[in-house]
Design a protein around this nucleic acid. Structure first.
Lengths: 157, 157
DNA sequence: TAAGATATTGAAAAAATATACAGAATATGC
DNA sequence: GCATATTCTGTATATTTTTTCAATATCTTA
């Protein structure tokens, strides 16, 4: 099925979907399908599911607490936020001693925060170990330790 | 429910989940719940759903074509890949003339590629318009146009 | 153009995920 | 400690998403 200019329905529809996801808060595939139908694109939820897969759209947690669809670019914005939230929520202090950065967290929160640190894959960080409320982050030199402390503190503002 | 060290079940479990999602290809919440149960953490899919929400894990398309869960850090890796794939798949040529970059694509692919370009939010780019198989990208100066052409070409290798 | 191959789609079903509710566990204030 | 408030969780269910299957539609190539 094509229109007179040789633009396939599928491509046009997927472009519309990208637009919609950018402009509005799309919560479900059915909602998206309905909007498309309102705009004259007759489509079912099943097709929308396939489009979302092809476009690699993501279902992310919106600030309002519910799920919504987003492009990976939109999601990227939120990525750093996760760290910030995690850190501001759980980290109590950050200091360095020698080539070790010591991070103290709320009881029980170290493991999750440590995972997040590992996930960041900062070049300076050789590795980290998390206990219950303490994380040791090993870097190469005391200078790097100071640097990393500052980087962490910047995240916390 | 707490263990003797005051580490809540929830935190420990969520740390395990982050680990698992990093280490293995977790395709469904039920699969994740089963692995946790194997490891002695008695948990249902419902709780895993809540954990995934709190941890802001994402369900992404894995290279193998199926869905899997991932941390946003893992997903980030894939983000640039989306552009590369999109571009290499659809872009035929990139040239500049004056302060306009002209990108030619396969028929019907311009709209989606144009969306992606808009999504990148490069500083140099004032705006873009997509037709069926052509995208005009407007930048400030001819010099910037050359620069942007090169940036695009780098993406394509 | 016609035959065969490929791609796209909807309907229905299956699978997966999110949540309402109620009870249990934990924390808090006295 | 006791009473109350809050958090956490499982069960059951509602909702949402994915996929199977069959029917078109589109593309390719002779």
């Amino acid at each position: 099925m094509q229109n007179e200019r040789g633009v396939s329905m599928k491509n046009a529809r997927q472009a519309m979907i990208l637009n919609l996801v950018n402009e509005r808060e799309i919560r479900t595939q059915e909602e998206l399908a309905e909007i498309l139908r309102e705009q004259g694109v007759n489509v079912t939820q099943a097709t929308v599911s396939r489009d979302i897969k092809e476009l690699r759209l993501l279902k992310i947690l919106s600030p309002s607490g519910g799920y919504r669809y987003a492009t990976s670019e939109q999601a990227e914005h939120g990525i750093s936020e996760r760290f910030v939230r995690l850190f501001t929520d759980s980290v109590l202090s950050i200091e360095s001693a020698g080539n070790i950065v010591v991070i103290r967290t709320l009881s029980g929160a170290a493991a999750v925060a440590g995972e997040a640190i590992d996930g960041m894959r900062w070049e300076e960080i050789l590795g980290s170990i998390s206990g219950d409320n303490t994380i040791f982050v090993v870097v190469r030199t005391p200078e790097e330790a100071t640097l990393v402390v500052n980087k962490f503190k910047e995240i916390l503002h």
